[in-house]
Design a protein around this nucleic acid. Structure first.
Length: 296
DNA sequence: AACACGTGGGA
DNA sequence: TTCCCAAGTGT
């Protein structure tokens, strides 16, 4: 038996109203933001806080305002401009996106979910986000923020399951307003609610527009009881080693000697493995003369 | 379906 | 200081 009260009244309207008043004015949300700018922001924001993305995004858009502008440069320039945002393979894939958009889509970021999904580095979330935010379409946009809001608001638990389920997708789709532009606004609104109010730690429930509807609140905000949610060691890992190695190349003006890489990581076995990994990923180019460079 | 993949800031 | 985690994707 479904409720007689339409979801639009219970969730949509309060959250849209809250968003209208409390949304951050981020540059990729400005009226003059382009689909390319929005796509770039979405890739940069993957697993990365807004505060760190902001300056890099501004510099990036100033330098490469169109996909064609980026496509015209070596991929290594994208890796260099990526700076310390993390997960530098994203920079490589963004460059590959620019090439694909230039070659296959006449330089215009495609608007269909399917075409977006085929671009390198664009998965289910990012394709839905770009289609929604750049083209005002109606898609379930299910990121970590939205999953957490739905887990609490509807599921009555503190955190969503570790990996995304079909039930979550179905739920997100069932909540989508029928009208496409409204659905797009709803998607960004519920995401923003998760980012600003319904946060992972210390949620600001007092500021929540749907506190009265919240199943987690109603249940007395029980603490998460499932298996440990995290545990990613970093110190001493290949990831850290790769980061050190790539930082050397990023900060160098041109190719570097092998010795310049050797000094940043003491364990030669791990160092070589990490370097081979970077080369395999296309993030590092081994030159004929024995030196190493960012890819061209 | 797990696991690899960077980085830095807040609690 | 240590731990958690921030608009995921590809294999």
């Amino acid at each position: 038996m479904t409720t007689a009260v339409p979801n639009a009244v219970r969730y949509t309207e309060p959250i849209l109203g809250w968003y209208a008043e409390h949304a951050r004015d981020l540059p990729w949300r400005a009226p003059d933001a382009t689909p390319w700018g929005i796509l770039v922001s979405e890739v940069m924001l993957q697993q990365t806080p807004v505060a760190r993305v902001l300056p890099i995004w501004r510099r990036w858009m100033e330098r490469w305002p169109t996909p064609a502008a980026l496509a015209a440069e070596p991929s290594g320039e994208a890796v260099r401009a990526w700076g310390r945002l993390g997960y530098p393979r994203r920079a490589l894939r963004l460059h590959a996106c620019a090439v694909a958009i230039t070659e296959r889509h006449g330089g215009q970021v495609p608007s269909s979910y399917e075409a977006l999904r085929e671009l390198p580095g664009i998965g289910a979330y990012t394709a839905a986000a770009v289609a929604s935010f750049a083209y005002r379409q109606r898609h379930a946009v299910l990121d970590t923020n939205v999953r957490r809001v739905l887990a609490r608001l509807i599921g009555g638990v503190e955190y969503p399951p570790r990996s995304q389920t079909a039930a979550e997708v179905a739920l997100a789709e069932s909540l989508l307003p029928h009208d496409a532009p409204t659905a797009a606004r709803w998607s960004v609104a519920i995401m923003e609610l998760g980012a600003l109010v319904c946060t992972a730690r210390n949620p600001r429930c007092v500021d929540c527009p749907v506190l009265a509807e919240c199943a987690w609140q109603r249940a007395g905000r029980p603490a998460y009881d499932g298996p440990p949610r995290r545990g990613q060691a970093y110190a001493g890992t290949d990831r850290q080693c790769r980061g050190r190695l790539l930082a050397v190349l990023r900060e160098a003006d041109g190719p570097v000697e092998k010795a310049a890489l050797d000094v940043v990581w003491s364990d030669p076995i791990q160092r070589e493995r990490a370097l081979d990994g970077l080369i395999a990923d296309g993030l590092v180019d081994p030159l004929e003369d024995g030196r190493y460079a960012l890819p061209s």
